[in-house]
Amino acid sequence: MLRFEQVSKRYADGTVAVDDLNLDVAEGELVTLVGPSGCGKTTTMRMVNRLEEPTAGRVLFDGRDVAEYDPVRLRRRIGYVIQQVGLFPHRTVLDNTATVPHLLGWRRPKARQRAAELLDLVGLDPAVYGDRYPDQLSGGQRQRVGVARALAADPPVLLMDEPFGAVDPVVRERLQNEFLRLQAEMRKTVLFVTHDIEEAVRLGDRIAVYGQGRVEQFDSPAAVLGAPANDYVASFVGSDRGLKRLSVTPVEKGDLEQPPVVHLADPMERAVARMRADGARWAVVLDENERLHGWVPAHEARGGEDAGRVARHARRMEAWLPLGASLKKAFSMMLQYDAGWIAVLDEEDRFLGVLTPGSLHEALRRSIDADAQDVPRAEVAFDTAEAPRVAAD
């Protein structure tokens, strides 16, 4: 969808903002541009909608050089979200959101209907917020309106320049979550500029790490964190990149342990026998539909005719997460519930296994080793805690 071919930007004073950039962004891909202030990432983005013109090379939009487009028409085909939002203070939220459809000649009812749909999509009820003015909104709400306005004409490409940088960390995380939800639904081609490596890792399908005017590494978040291309990238992503990697490493079936499993209707005598056979102090309890109910400890009942059914002794379990959730989410949940294990469920809430602190650590190490050896994660196994190896065929 977007391609940069040997693109450079040099200013009259000799400053080189971008130097011989080659970069491809696929349709529906979210690419984060990350680096320190003044490294050229914003200049790169602004050359897409011709707010900056390249000194050399060319920028292609859907196979066509952007220099061939009328700048005004081009910008109406590309959504643009900036940190300062840039809402018109004298227009209502609904009219702000409908700005680009109006400029494209849409009839007023159609433009306002589209604006209302987009406000609802970003979590702002148009019946509540549509008639308000920007100064009546919080910073996070204004950012949501900015995103809605950028999406109003359904542009194929979205440019976002530090859009969440002006809000506090709690609101920023909520906005990131909301945007990830929107992107999963709409699959826009997105260039997202940020100076925050954690934001880049969390949002990007791929990350372009900028040095001074150059991309030092362009790869998946897991690869950037697990195998930095050089000392500069390693320094930029930080010595705690292993912890950052938790947020981009999903829980997979191969990470799970299989404890004893019993059902609510089972006799406790049978459940105790199963736990003893496995040398386990507890068992996972499922209902008749194979969905998680909780767990049962072995020490509460010794079995026998008076022990009753498992349902009598089972405890509810709140610490669970879906397959594919991040290891960071799993780790956070373990801390939140002071849990020694987390249940993992499939899309239909059926029990798949448990993740323990040990298996979480092993999953992280396996992911890092898989990137280093360029093999699928499932092919990496461990003889001991110190000796990673590739599993034999």
Rank of each mutant, 00 (worst) to 15 (best):
L2E: 12
R3T: 14
Q6A: 15
V7Q: 13
V7E: 09
K9L: 13
L21K: 15
L21A: 09
N22G: 14
D24M: 05
A26V: 01
E27W: 05
G28W: 10
G28S: 09
E29N: 07
L30V: 02
L30A: 06
V31W: 08
G38D: 05
G40V: 07
K41A: 06
K41W: 10
R46P: 08
R50G: 00
E52W: 00
R58A: 15
L60G: 11
L60K: 14
G63C: 11
Y69W: 12
R75Y: 14
R75S: 11
R77L: 09
Y80F: 15
V81F: 03
I82T: 14
Q84W: 01
V85Q: 00
V85G: 04
G86E: 01
L87W: 02
P89T: 04
T97C: 09
R114C: 01
E117Q: 11
L119G: 09
D120Q: 13
L121G: 00
A127Y: 13
V128A: 11
Y133M: 04
G139I: 11
Q141N: 13
Q143Y: 11
V145Y: 01
G146S: 03
R149E: 05
P156C: 07
E162N: 08
G165C: 12
D168A: 12
V170M: 13
E173H: 05
E173S: 05
Q176A: 10
L180Y: 04
L182G: 04
L182P: 04
L182E: 01
R187D: 00
K188G: 06
T189P: 09
T189E: 09
V193C: 10
V201N: 10
G204W: 03
G204I: 14
I207D: 07
A208N: 04
Y210L: 15
G213C: 12
R214S: 08
V215K: 12
Q217N: 08
F218D: 05
A227R: 15
P228G: 12
A229D: 03
A229R: 14
D231S: 15
D231A: 15
Y232W: 10
G242D: 14
L243E: 15
L243Q: 14
K244Y: 15
R245S: 12
S247E: 10
T249N: 09
V251L: 06
H263L: 00
H263Y: 13
D266Q: 15
A271W: 13
A271S: 12
V272G: 15
M275Q: 10
G279R: 05
A283I: 08
V285H: 01
E290Q: 07
R291K: 14
H293I: 02
V296C: 10
R302F: 12
G308R: 07
R309L: 11
A314W: 07
A314P: 02
R316F: 03
R316A: 14
G324L: 00
S326L: 12
K329H: 04
S332L: 13
L335E: 11
Y337R: 12
D338W: 09
A339M: 07
A339E: 01
W341P: 00
I342C: 04
I342F: 04
V344N: 03
R350T: 11
L352F: 04
V354Y: 02
S359W: 12
L360D: 05
H361G: 10
D369K: 08
A370H: 05
Q373Y: 02
P376N: 04
A381C: 06
F382C: 00
A385S: 01
R389Q: 01
A392K: 08
D393M: 00
